[in-house]
Every structure is written in structure tokens, then in C-alpha cells.
Deep mutational scan, measured.
Amino acid sequence: DRIFMTRTEALEFLLKAHQTAVDKIGHPSHKQTPADHAAIEALDRLLLDVRARRVDQFQINASAAQIIVTD
């Protein structure tokens, strides 16, 4: 599946995904793992790359739809 978004929409989408990941590892019942921190770092890099126009398409994980940034 493909989803087309403007750059602004894609950045909002990534910010929400980032916040969800941060909230998940901050929850008291969740045991933090290196994979959790790696996922947040990957989202940080992706946010910067989309914002800087170095990336025009991405996929958060293998089961997610491919996001295509349109400007």
C-alpha cells in the first residue's frame, strides 16, 4: 500500500509516531530495551531527513504502508 502526503503531513505523522514511541518507553509498566531507543533514534533521523528534503518516501516498519511525500 502507498499513502501520498504533503511534506507537512508527513512531518506531523512522524512527530506523532515519535511521541508514541517516547510515551511507550516512558510508561512505568514497559521495560526499556535497546531496540526501543534505536527506534526513536531512527525516527529522529527520518524526521530530519524528511524536513531537509533528503527523503521523499519512507516506511516506518515492514508491515506499514509506504509513505510518499509530495510537494
Rank of each mutant, 00 (worst) to 15 (best):
L48W: 08
R45S: 07
N61F: 10
R2P: 08
A39R: 11
E41R: 08
T33G: 08
A10V: 04
A65Y: 13
L47F: 11
I40Q: 03
I67M: 03
D44W: 15
D56K: 14
I67P: 00
Q19H: 08
A17T: 06
S63P: 07
D1A: 04
S63D: 12
I25T: 06
A35N: 12
Q19D: 06
F4I: 09
H27R: 10
I25E: 02
L43Y: 02
H27L: 10
D44T: 14
L15A: 11
V69G: 01
A64G: 14
A17M: 11
R53T: 08
D1F: 02
A64Q: 13
Q66L: 15
Q59G: 03
I3V: 11
V69C: 03
T70Y: 13
Q19K: 12
H27I: 06
V22E: 04
A39E: 14
L43M: 08
K31F: 15
L46T: 02
A38K: 10
L11C: 07
D44N: 14
I3Y: 07
L43Q: 04
A10P: 00
E12H: 11
L14G: 00
R7M: 11
R54M: 07
F13A: 04
V69F: 03
K16M: 11
A52F: 14
I68C: 06
I67R: 01
Q66A: 10
D71K: 04
T6H: 04
T33W: 08
L48E: 13
R51S: 15
K24M: 12
Q66V: 15
L43N: 00
A64R: 07
T8C: 06
T20S: 14
R2V: 15
D44S: 15
A52P: 01
E9M: 07
Q32T: 15
K24Y: 06
V22S: 06
A35T: 05
R51G: 12
I25D: 02
I40A: 06
A17W: 07
V50S: 00
A17D: 00
A21D: 01
V50W: 01
K24S: 06
L15Y: 10
Q19Y: 05
D36H: 05
I25R: 04
A17C: 06
T6P: 04
D36S: 04
A35H: 08
F13M: 12
V69E: 02
R2G: 05
A38N: 08
Q32D: 15
D56E: 09
A35M: 09
R2W: 10
A64M: 11
T8I: 13
I25Q: 05
A62D: 11
T70Q: 09
V69A: 02
S29L: 06
Q59S: 10
D36N: 05
G26T: 14
S63N: 12
T33F: 06
T70H: 08
S29V: 04
V50Y: 01
A64C: 05
F13W: 11
D36P: 02
V55H: 02
D56T: 12
I25A: 07
D71N: 04
H18F: 13
G26E: 08
F58T: 00
D71T: 08
L47D: 01
A42I: 12
D23L: 07
I68K: 05
F4Q: 07
D23K: 10
T70D: 08
A62H: 12
L11H: 02
F58R: 00
F58L: 02
L48Q: 14
M5H: 01
E12F: 10
V69T: 02
I67Y: 07
L15D: 05
D23N: 08
T20Q: 14
S63G: 06
G26F: 15
D1P: 13
D49M: 08
T70L: 12
M5S: 00
Q32P: 15
E9D: 09
A10Q: 00
A10W: 00
H27K: 11
P28Q: 09
T70I: 14
D49Q: 08
A21T: 07
T20W: 09
F13N: 01
V22D: 01
D44A: 11
L15N: 09
A38L: 12
R2E: 07
V50Q: 00
V69L: 08
T20M: 15
R54Q: 06
L43C: 02
F13R: 02
L15T: 13
T8F: 14
H27W: 10
H37D: 13
N61T: 12
R54D: 07
K31S: 15
I68E: 04
L48S: 14
V50D: 00
Q57R: 14
F4D: 02
R7D: 01
Q66W: 15
H18P: 00
A21N: 04
F13P: 00
N61V: 09
L14V: 04
V22A: 08
F13Y: 09
R2M: 10
D56G: 10
K16W: 11
Q57G: 06
E9L: 05
T6S: 14
R54G: 03
K16Q: 04
L48T: 14
I67Q: 01
V55N: 02
V50C: 01
A35Y: 11
R2H: 11
T70A: 09
V22P: 01
I60C: 06
I3G: 02
D36L: 15
L43I: 12
T8W: 12
V22W: 10
L48H: 15
L11A: 03
E9V: 04
A10L: 02
F58M: 01
D44P: 01
N61D: 10
F4P: 03
K16N: 08
H30T: 04
H37N: 10
F4E: 09
A52K: 12
Q59Y: 11
H37Y: 13
D1Y: 09
H18R: 14
Q32I: 15
D49P: 00
L15E: 10
Q19I: 15
F58E: 00
A52M: 13
A52V: 08
D56Y: 14
Q66E: 11
H37R: 13
F4M: 09
Q57M: 13
I40C: 03
A17L: 12
V69P: 01
V50T: 01
R45V: 07
P28V: 08
K24I: 11
I60D: 04
I40N: 01
S63V: 05
D71W: 04
M5D: 00
A17R: 04
H37M: 15
E41T: 07
T33R: 05
I67K: 00
A35K: 08
L14P: 00
T8Y: 11
P28H: 07
N61C: 05
I40R: 03
L15K: 14
I40K: 03
R45G: 05
H30Q: 03
Q32W: 15
V55P: 01
N61I: 07
T20G: 08
Q59N: 07
A21I: 14
D49G: 08
V50N: 00
I25Y: 07
A17N: 04
A35Q: 12
I68M: 08
A38R: 09
S63K: 11
H30E: 06
F58W: 01
D44G: 12
T70K: 11
D56N: 14
I67W: 02
K24E: 09
E9C: 08
Q32E: 15
R45C: 04
H27E: 14
N61S: 15
A39D: 08
Q66D: 05
L47W: 09
A65S: 10
R53S: 14
A10R: 00
D1G: 09
I60F: 06
L14Q: 00
V69N: 01
V22H: 06
T6C: 04
T6W: 02
I67N: 01
I67E: 00
L14C: 00
R2L: 10
A17E: 08
A10H: 08
H27V: 07
T6M: 03
Q59E: 05
I25P: 02
L47P: 00
T33I: 03
T20R: 11
E12G: 10
L47M: 10
T8D: 15
